[in-house]
Simulated scan of single mutants.
Amino acid sequence: MWSRVRRAGIVTALILPSSLFVVPSAHAGLGGAPMTPPADASVTSRTVQPVGGAAQSVMRAASGASSSSSSSSSASSASGSYTVRDTTLGNGTVVHEYLASDGTVFGIAWRGPQMPDLNDMLGSYFPQYVAGVKTAKAARGGARGPVTVDRNGLVVHSGGHMGAFNGQAWLTPALPAGVSGSDIQ
């Protein structure tokens, strides 16, 4: 016979790992608000105006790590413009978040010695990304290498090697007028 304590331990051991996957992220991500930068990060913002298919920076404003998206939303009030929020993490990785005029993130790019937490960065789109990665790896026989996911309006390119990672992600339907996926860098 199983004792109550032993049954409770087994139930906890079975339920706890699966419950960790359904806990929502503490940070916003793609399709939502910009990420909350860690305390050791530095953040700057710049407004970009698409001009004839090419993006042109029209302003650069520095902000502290504790700043909110208020500076980016006021900076992106010009018609057709968007804001790029650059966050340099403590490990040296730089994350660029592309914000529409309403403050939602429509694109993300990263480059640096460590991969950022894509679960946080992609937000509710992370499961779609994971499914796309599994499909891509299965198609190439499980071989490692750069990953491209293009599913239901989500596009993610991720690659690199130890000490030098990079990637881009964007939501095709959310791209502002005059902006293409190639502008997410």
Rank of each mutant, 00 (worst) to 15 (best):
S3A: 15
V5W: 14
R7T: 11
I10A: 10
V11R: 00
T12N: 03
L14D: 01
L14N: 02
I15K: 00
P17D: 02
P17M: 01
S19T: 09
L20P: 03
V22M: 07
V22P: 02
V23D: 01
V23F: 08
P24E: 08
A26R: 12
A26Y: 08
H27T: 13
G29L: 09
L30K: 10
P34R: 04
M35A: 15
P37N: 09
D40H: 04
A41Q: 04
S42M: 15
V43H: 08
T44W: 07
S45W: 14
V48L: 00
V51P: 03
G52L: 07
A54N: 07
A55K: 01
Q56N: 06
M59G: 07
M59N: 13
M59K: 14
A61Q: 11
A62R: 05
A65N: 09
S66A: 13
S66F: 09
S67A: 13
S68T: 14
S70V: 10
S72R: 07
S72F: 05
S73G: 09
S74W: 15
S77Y: 11
S77G: 11
A78G: 14
S79G: 15
G80W: 06
S81K: 11
T83I: 08
T83N: 12
R85M: 11
T88K: 07
G90L: 00
N91C: 02
T93Y: 05
V94T: 03
V95N: 01
H96C: 02
E97H: 06
E97K: 06
L99M: 05
S101E: 03
S101P: 03
I108Q: 10
W110M: 06
P113A: 15
P113D: 09
Q114K: 09
M115D: 10
P116G: 07
D117C: 08
S124K: 11
Y125V: 12
Y125L: 14
G132L: 00
K134R: 09
T135F: 02
A136R: 12
A139Y: 05
G142R: 01
R144I: 06
R144H: 14
P146I: 05
P146K: 07
T148Q: 15
N152R: 08
G153A: 04
G153W: 05
L154C: 08
V155P: 07
V155L: 08
S158N: 08
S158P: 03
G160S: 10
G160P: 11
M162P: 15
G163V: 11
A164E: 12
N166L: 12
Q168M: 12
Q168G: 14
L171W: 13
T172Y: 05
P176H: 02
P176A: 03
A177F: 01
V179P: 00
D183H: 12
D183C: 11
I184R: 05
I184Q: 05
I184N: 04
Q185I: 00
